[in-house]
Amino acid sequence: MSLEFLIASAIGALVAGGVYLSLRARTFQVVLGLTLLSYAVNLFLFAVGRLTVDRPPLYAKGVADYADPLPQALVLTAIVITFGMTALSVVLALRSFLESGSDQVDGIADEEAES
């Protein structure tokens, strides 16, 4: 099994899980879904610089092939931003649950008592 297949299927599984969870009705699951989606995006961005093994990113003596350092910088930026966003959405979801007494995304409380 090649490295490409492994990374691609990992991204695919994360996106599938992320999309499924983001479409759920409760805020906690949605937040988890967003987290999975951002993992997938970060992995994807990382892979955009081509998958290479054991290559220096910037400069090393006597080396001809380099890994692309830019996607790593992009991923770092993306991680920081999504971390902030996730924190915000957790606080927001919690606050909205406390204010309205329901953790439904559309704000309609469950009529039937679910377990």
């Binding site: 989606l37 996607p71 931003i81």
Partner: peptide, 24 residues
């Protein structure tokens, strides 16, 4: 707050798609 949750979630998903397009 309820409308805010939806707004934030939609835009986070939008940002994820933006990053995928940028990566491509």
């Amino acid at each position: 707050l309820k409308a805010g949750v939806a707004y934030v979630v939609v835009n986070i998903v939008g940002s994820a798609i933006f990053l995928v397009a940028l990566g491509l």
